[in-house]
Amino acid sequence: MTTTAVDPAKCRRCHRALTSAKSIATGYGPGCAAKIRGAAKTADLTDFKPAQIAKATELIEQGGILRTRRPNLYTAVSGDGNTTYLVARQACTCPAGIKNRACYHRAALTILAAA
């Protein structure tokens, strides 16, 4: 009988192993999740509307924003889940970002940077 090793799920923020089902589902350990929730309340989000902040928080909670190999560049999933965008704190390739408007993808990076 052959067994294969399964890679443990790791926190998207601190890269520690996740053990609880809830942490594995969200992608963040309880400590990192608390820091992100706190950052959402204290980060400078004056450029974003309340609806964008709510969507940014949901994007983070659902694991829809991922680091790339390039520093300060992330991949974000669209609201319908069919498209991905490249996001940096100052720019995004989503339709709003291309028009130099604030988008919830950038709000999510602002929250993550403050955490």
Rank of each mutant, 00 (worst) to 15 (best):
M1C: 03
T2A: 10
T2I: 06
T2P: 05
T3L: 14
A5F: 10
D7H: 11
D7A: 15
C11H: 03
R13P: 00
C14V: 04
A17M: 09
L18A: 09
T19V: 12
S20N: 12
A25N: 07
G27I: 06
Y28M: 09
Y28T: 04
G29N: 10
P30S: 15
P30N: 12
G31F: 03
G31R: 12
G31I: 06
C32W: 03
K35C: 05
K35A: 12
I36H: 10
I36D: 02
G38I: 05
A40K: 08
K41D: 07
T42W: 00
L45I: 04
D47V: 02
F48C: 03
F48Y: 11
F48L: 01
K49E: 09
K49F: 04
P50Q: 08
A51Y: 07
A51D: 08
I53F: 10
I53T: 14
I53Y: 07
A54Y: 02
A54R: 15
K55H: 13
A56G: 06
A56I: 04
T57L: 13
T57W: 00
E58V: 05
E58A: 14
L59Q: 13
E61D: 15
E61V: 09
Q62A: 09
Q62K: 15
G64W: 09
G64T: 06
I65S: 01
I65C: 00
L66T: 07
R67Q: 13
T68P: 10
R69N: 14
R69V: 10
R70H: 03
N72W: 00
L73M: 13
Y74C: 00
T75F: 00
T75C: 00
T75D: 04
A76C: 07
A76H: 03
V77I: 14
V77C: 10
V77W: 02
V77S: 06
S78Y: 05
G79R: 15
G79N: 14
D80L: 12
D80R: 14
D80I: 03
N82T: 12
T83L: 06
L86E: 15
V87I: 13
R89T: 13
Q90Y: 07
A91N: 10
C92F: 01
C92I: 06
T93A: 02
T93K: 05
T93N: 04
C94Y: 12
P95W: 00
P95S: 08
P95M: 04
A96I: 02
G97S: 09
G97W: 13
K99C: 06
N100L: 13
R101M: 05
A102L: 06
A102I: 06
C103G: 08
H105I: 02
R106G: 03
R106Q: 14
A107P: 02
A107Q: 02
T110D: 00
A113N: 11
A113Q: 12
A114Y: 03
A114K: 04
A115M: 08
